[in-house]
Design a protein around this nucleic acid. Structure first.
Lengths: 138, 138
DNA sequence: CACTGATCGTCAGTAAGACTGATGATTACC
DNA sequence: GGTAATCATCAGTCTTACTGACGATCAGTG
């Protein structure tokens, strides 16, 4: 049996993760990407859209669409940034904070189930390895 | 600093991998997914499109498009399957085998560079962990 | 102050990837 | 022989994420 390529392993490892986190977040009306945006907006507030985009390494135009969606759902609000009129200060609404709290717990639980087939040691090494592999030293 | 979520880590670990394997395969005119298809077709020949699709866990209709592309590039040929006239026996052309050989070497080398920041131990554990995480026990 | 260049948010258009659902041809079941 | 399942295909759709352009605003220079 030939050893599978890393690309295959990553793709399907990620697919299985999505199959767990997706349904866990679905009752809250968001997906994993939106939860990530909520997390950054909450932690770094008040933050411009581009700062948040850089934090998550997503495109600036993608962030526009994400904030659009979250705003439509009433989870965030665009406000004029105090220091710079070009920027939006994007803030979580009360409901946004609630969804963030519950979403974080749901994902935590889903990740626990996801990692269940691994030993404690493997989980630790996996996380450390991914951390380094995900970082470009460009 | 808050621990990043698995979804983020997987996404960006995969992005960096693609940034290495993509250019490595580019001179051959294929991408990683096409190389994977060539690999399966070569190992299991003669194989129907759906068998190959199942092997790689991609959709049957996606496989049609992949074989279309590979056929256009002269790397594979659809032939009537000896046992079942519904099936195509998809086979590598001579040039397809050459591209597979050189592509496999190129990806091997790219993966080596990709894993360079990890210790030998970490590489072993990572692979074992991904293997299990990528497998649905459904 | 006036100019130049950069930054921020936005929008339109596009491209890749992968799906659903339908179809015709063929095969297997009984 | 008739019904159900399988294979490859196609059209259409959906998601994700991009490029390139735009107006508005800011920062630095002289």
């Amino acid at each position: 049996m030939s050893r599978r390529r890393l690309g295959y392993l990553f793709k399907h490892a990620q697919l299985r993760l999505t199959r767990l986190t997706g349904p866990a977040l679905e009752p809250l009306g968001i997906d994993g990407r939106e939860l990530a945006v909520l997390t950054v907006l909450d932690a770094r507030s008040p933050v411009s859209q581009q700062q948040a985009a850089q934090e998550l390494r997503i495109d600036r135009t993608t962030m526009v669409a994400m904030v659009d969606a979250l705003e439509r759902k009433g989870l965030v609000a665009r406000r004029p940034h105090p220091d710079d009129r070009r920027k939006n200060a994007v803030e979580l609404t009360e409901r946004g904070r609630d969804v963030l709290t519950r979403g974080a717990a749901a994902v935590e639980e889903a990740e626990r189930a996801y990692l269940e087939p691994l030993t404690e040691d493997e989980r630790r090494v996996l996380r450390a390895a991914l951390d380094r592999l995900a970082t470009d030293e460009d």
